[in-house]
Simulated scan of single mutants.
Amino acid sequence: MMESLTLQLDGLRVSRETNAKLSQFADLFRKWAKVINLVAPSTAGDLWSRHIADSAQLFALHPYPVTWVDLGSGGGFPGIITGILLSELGDGWVHLIESNHKKASFLRNAILQTGARASVHAVRIEEAPKLVPRCDAISARALADLSALCEFSKPWVDANPGIRLFLHKGRDYAREVNDAHRSWSFDLVEHASQIERESVILEILNLTHKR
């Protein structure tokens, strides 16, 4: 039975067509997850809430037709979900950065099956700015600590100082923020997760490296 994100997230309403694409992605994900490790096995059973709805929170916070870079896209969270939701707008794009070639193959298949507004770059994050020199927003989920994510993001921030970062973080996020402030200056908005009680989405603006 198809589930609906409209029942799970405040501020997000999707069409029946988009909901069908999300359901199609979920079916494809389950098939591929039997062969390759796309997410932690302990969380795979709660795919809609733990991963799809959790990822959709980013689009709910920034529902505009902009160009995204999704770092370490893995099983498609949040990048593929953002790309599917962008298809409802008919504009915007997500560049999925995933160096694991098996996962990159899954992501390409998911794009073909769902019509997500996205493309895959099977390279290391450090190499990605050469292929995608500019973007408006950056996302990452379960990838690295905040200091490392700031470092990864720097080439895109240098190209577009108005860029926004949307980063999923767990209960230890305050320590990561304090650690990052040693080397980085930034404005921070903390959005409480609608899915995980102790999790947040950190929205970072005006990121600069301290001299």
Rank of each mutant, 00 (worst) to 15 (best):
P129Y: 05
P129F: 13
K130F: 08
L131G: 09
L131Y: 05
L131A: 09
L131I: 07
V132E: 06
V132M: 08
P133I: 14
R134S: 06
R134F: 08
A137P: 01
I138L: 14
S139R: 10
R141G: 03
L143V: 15
L143I: 15
L146C: 05
L146Y: 02
L146F: 03
L146G: 01
S147Q: 09
S147D: 13
A148F: 07
A148K: 15
L149Q: 07
L149W: 00
C150E: 00
C150L: 15
C150F: 12
E151Q: 14
E151M: 05
E151F: 04
F152I: 14
F152S: 01
S153E: 11
K154C: 02
K154T: 10
K154W: 14
P155V: 06
P155K: 03
W156V: 09
W156Y: 08
D158C: 07
A159W: 04
N160I: 00
P161V: 11
P161R: 13
P161M: 10
P161F: 05
G162V: 02
G162N: 11
I163N: 05
R164S: 15
R164I: 06
R164D: 01
F166D: 00
L167P: 12
H168T: 04
K169S: 05
G170D: 12
D172L: 11
Y173Q: 06
Y173P: 07
A174C: 11
R175L: 15
R175W: 06
E176C: 05
V177Y: 00
V177D: 01
V177M: 05
D179R: 13
D179F: 04
A180D: 03
A180R: 11
R182M: 10
W184C: 13
W184G: 04
W184K: 12
S185K: 08
F186D: 06
L188F: 01
A192F: 07
S193E: 03
Q194D: 07
I195T: 11
I195Q: 11
R197Q: 12
R197C: 07
E198P: 07
